[in-house]
Amino acid sequence: MGTIGERIRSVRKRRGLTQQGLADLAGVSASLIRKLEQDARRDVRLETLRKIAVALKVPTTSFMAQHDSESADERTRDLWAPVRRALYGLDSPPSEAPTREGLGSALEASMPLWKQDRYSQVATMLPRMLRDADTLVTADLSARHVRGRLLHLVGWLMTQTRQFDEAEFALSRAMDDMNDPLDAAATISTHCWLLLRQGQLNEARQMATHWADDVEPRISRATPHQLSAWGWLLLRSSAAAIRDNRPGEADDTIRLARTAAVAMGGDLTPDEDFLRTFGPITVAMKRVENAMVEDRPDKVIQLSQTIPVTDLRPTSNNRNRHLLDVAEALRRMHRHGEAFEILQGVRHDAPEWMTNQRYARDILKGIIGKRRTLTGEMRNLADFVRLEY
């Protein structure tokens, strides 16, 4: 298939475009196209590849085979080193025999930390919990459900912090422990998100579609668990499709997700599992995300005005990502002051989450990039998100 650069150059020539012509259509610089075609740039973002794919009228995955996703930085990997050791079973078993009730209680007690993205505190608790879970399952197979839920959360958090190999390992182990199809579907939804963050669009779309077909409920009789599982898989499929330059498919799947959300009757959290929170507001935020991927800042602002974010708890997997989309839309419309205020708000609500967001760094870079002087607040936020400026 050749390198990304060779494939872009080949399609560009077939379309009869110069490098400048392609750059104009894609809304990027001619120097970027030149560097990509010369294989001098390997850190190109998925969103940029999508713009080029749209301009050339091909799926984004045409250019994805060698796309490298950004992984965790050294500071993050140091923080999570003890968790990785426990996840891979490299620690000694606990000296005191754990109990299923004790592990379940510890997991429930830790849930506020997960919901509030207090990563450093979660990181101190997880090694013991993982060791206890493995020890328990060795003696009592009925404890696999508790371990599966723990591993699902670990896989989600490793995805959040861009530790992708560990996320894959944790989610695969979680699936081995799942004996309920809806629990498995929720884990698959997180796995699809992992694939999306790695740029594996085809794999994410196919996995989400396959599982959505398997768990599709009869709407008139569906439980909140069933609607949430089905709806989230449809949202993952839509997210993959829009990034792969398949807008019709993305629209179809998100309409189905809205059907599930309306039947839900509101945004609900089955079994108090925040990863399964689903309803009309969740779908509305994902519609905004799709509009941002399509580079429609006007549509993002229009849609966002109907979403009551002030009524939502600050959760990283929904609200905060939505706010970053709104901030980016405002930035692209040259409303930099409003965009900056949103970034400041996200920092206040979820500081540990924000430091793991390349998206936030890119938005801030766009805000301050051409300014001759920076305010103290701008320098402070740039340092906080580890932006080189």
Rank of each mutant, 00 (worst) to 15 (best):
V146Q: 11
W232S: 01
S238E: 06
T161G: 06
L150K: 04
L157V: 11
P181D: 03
V154F: 04
L234R: 15
D180G: 08
A229G: 10
V154D: 04
D214A: 15
L171Q: 03
A222F: 11
S142P: 02
D140Y: 11
A186E: 06
M178S: 15
R218G: 08
R118E: 15
L171R: 04
I219S: 08
W156A: 05
S142M: 10
W232D: 07
A212T: 06
H210L: 14
T124S: 13
P217T: 07
L233F: 09
A212K: 02
R173G: 05
S120W: 02
A133C: 10
A167W: 03
R205I: 01
E166K: 00
M207C: 07
Q198K: 15
T159S: 11
W211G: 00
R128P: 00
T209Y: 00
R218Q: 14
A174F: 03
R221P: 00
L150D: 07
Q226C: 05
Q163C: 11
R149F: 12
N202M: 07
W232Y: 11
E203C: 06
W156V: 05
V146F: 01
A170C: 03
A222H: 08
V137M: 08
S237W: 01
W193A: 11
A239C: 07
Q206I: 11
R128W: 06
R149T: 13
E216L: 02
H152I: 00
N202Q: 09
M158W: 01
L150E: 08
R221Q: 14
L234Q: 15
F164Y: 15
D177Y: 00
L235E: 07
V122C: 12
R162F: 14
Q198E: 15
E216K: 12
H152K: 13
A208E: 04
G231S: 09
V137F: 03
I188D: 06
L126N: 09
A186K: 01
R128M: 10
T209P: 00
A123C: 12
D177K: 03
A185T: 02
R205K: 07
S228T: 08
F164D: 05
Y119W: 09
V154P: 08
W193R: 11
A208D: 07
G231E: 07
A186F: 10
D117A: 15
N202I: 12
A229M: 10
E203F: 02
R118G: 02
L234E: 12
N202L: 12
H145V: 13
R118S: 09
D177A: 04
W193M: 11
T161S: 08
T138L: 11
D213P: 01
R118H: 09
Q163A: 04
A184D: 09
G148R: 04
H210K: 15
E216C: 12
S237A: 15
T159L: 04
W211K: 08
R173N: 13
F164V: 02
W230P: 00
S228I: 10
R205F: 08
Q200N: 13
V215I: 14
G148K: 03
M158F: 14
W211D: 09
N202F: 02
Q160H: 09
L136K: 01
M175T: 10
V137S: 03
L151Q: 11
S220V: 11
V137I: 09
G148D: 03
R205N: 05
Q226P: 05
D180T: 03
V146L: 15
Y119R: 09
L171S: 06
S220N: 12
E216A: 15
M158P: 00
M175F: 06
